[in-house]
Each structure stands twice: as structure tokens, then as C-alpha cells.
Amino acid sequence: MSDTPESAKISSRNQSMKKRKLEEQVAIGVLFLGGLLAVGIVLAIFSFIFTESLPLVTDPDQRNEMSLYHDTENEEEFARTASVFQTLDNMLGQIMWQPVSEQPLFSLWPLMAGTLKITLVAVVEGTIISFLTALAIAFYLPKRLRYAVKVITELLAGMPTVVLGFLGLIFFATYMQEITGTTFRLNAFLAGTMLSLTVIPIMTTLFEDIYSSYPKEQIHAAKCCGLFDYQIITSIIIPATYGKVFAAGLLGFGRSFGETMIVLMCSGNAAIFNMDFAAGARTFAATIGAEMGEVIVGDTHYSMLFLLGFILIVTTFVINYLSQKLIRKWTYA
């Protein structure tokens, strides 16, 4: 029965169907594995950064080294008793960052102050400039120039950060010092200003999207009410979109928070605990970038730098999550 031509055809068709089915299953499986791998990479990043910083808490030697109160006569006894609180005390109870010394000091405060100083300057300058530029692109520039200005602004986003850092260090620092009259050539304000150049293209694009996606009919209706452009902006668009603008600002904060090269080159890298914008500053990211090269693997310092990385990653994750939520929440009614 199976050698009739009709059934042979059917069986060959069945076989090709089988092959197709197998191919489908394999391909979908591979695609699925790809998706899985993306999740895997994220999990790996989080877990490895975390586990490498864990010895600060779990390893008695590191705890001992972190301890500020060395009992030299009773070193061994002490090593068993040095607690997590000693580690925390070193990180939060004093204000010095001196990783390579007899008694290593790892205070987080100067780094926090430095990060705050520099990102504050970057976000404030970036937000103001991008906000006004986006308004110009959406409302005020001559129509022919709008697209050109947009493209040129986006050009800034393609500029490598090391180039901006280099220009800040070699070129802008001298002129900035002449203008502002600061004692230090490299300071937090310079680094923040250079950093704002990386924030501007992102935020301008975001703001511009917000304004150009605003319902056109409402703007036309407002024009029919006889309102000026500035009245439309201040009384209709800004009240309806301030949440999104805030979220965009948060996103810019998240971006400039983890930027390394510009800060490493322009900030002077002085780990000092104050809020003086004319003084040097050192951020979490720049600390990792500057010190990771010379560190001994498995050392207290090594673990500490991974802890800084963990702080960075968690903070950016939270900031991003919040701003995504905010952007989704504030939709136009």
C-alpha cells in the first residue's frame, strides 16, 4: 500500500513537514535563548558587582582592616570580633577617603558630596539650556532652521566623552578660570559644565518630543482664543507636561551620575567633603576609574570599589525606573 505514488507523495510531504517543524522548533528555541541571555547578562552584572563587594561584610580580615580602632596587642582576638559596624563606621563615621595608607579610610561622604556637586551643576545647566532650546525648536525658531538645529544638537550626543573631557582639561579650563576667578584650574563647576554637554542632547530630544507630541488641536484652539505663543507655553503646555519634564530631568540625572571620563579629567579628583563648587570634587564613577587600575584583586580596596559600582548601578536603576514610571503616568488627559 505504501508504494502507490499517491501515498509516497503524502509521506514525502509529511517528511518535509517534519523537517519544517523541527527547523521551527530549533529556531524559536535559539531566539528564546537569546532573550534569556539578555536577562542573564543583567543578572550577572548585578550579582557579580554585588558578590565582589560582599567580603567587606563577610570577610573578617577585611572587617579588621576597615576597623578604625586597632588593638595592636590583641590583633588575633580582635580579628574575630571586628563586626560589620566597624565597616560601616569607616564608611559613614568619618569623612576621609584615603584608600592607600597605614589605616585605609573609605568614607563615602566626600564622594557623595562630589557626585552631588557635579551632577547638580550638570543637570541644572543641562535642564535650563535644553528646556529653552526645545522651546526654540518647537515654537520660536524660523521653520527652516528647526530641523538643522535639532540635527546639530544631536551631533553633540555622538561626541565621545573623552573628547569633551580632553577639551575641558586642556582648553576650557584656562578660560573658565579667567572668567570665574577660581583658585583651582580644575573644579566641580568646570566638570559639571562639560558634563552638561552630554546631557543637553538627550534632554533636548526628550523635551522636544514632549512639545511636538502635544495635541496640535489644543494649540490651534489656543491660537483661536487669541493667546500669544508665550501664553500658550506658560498657561497650557507647561501645566500639562511638567511631570514629563521632571521625568526627563531625572533621566538626565541618571545619565550624568555615572559618567566617568569627563569627571576624571576635569574635576581635579580631590576627595573633599564640602559643597564648594569652586573646589575640586570626586565622584563615585571617577573613583572607580582612577583607582581600579592599581588595586590588588581581593583586597579591601578592591571590594570597596565594587561597592561603589553597586551603589552606582542601584541608583541608576532606581532613577530610571522612577522616570519611566513618571513618563508613563503623566499622559495627556
Binding site: 558587582i49 564613577a285 576609574g289 570599589l305 565594587f306 548601578i313 541608576t316
Partner: peptide, 8 residues
């Protein structure tokens, strides 16, 4: 994720 963290 900040690029320096990729380095770590």
C-alpha cells in the same frame, strides 16, 4: 547602566 560599571 553606567559604562564604568561595565568595566568592573
Amino acid at each position: 547602566v553606567p559604562s564604568i560599571v561595565y568595566g568592573l
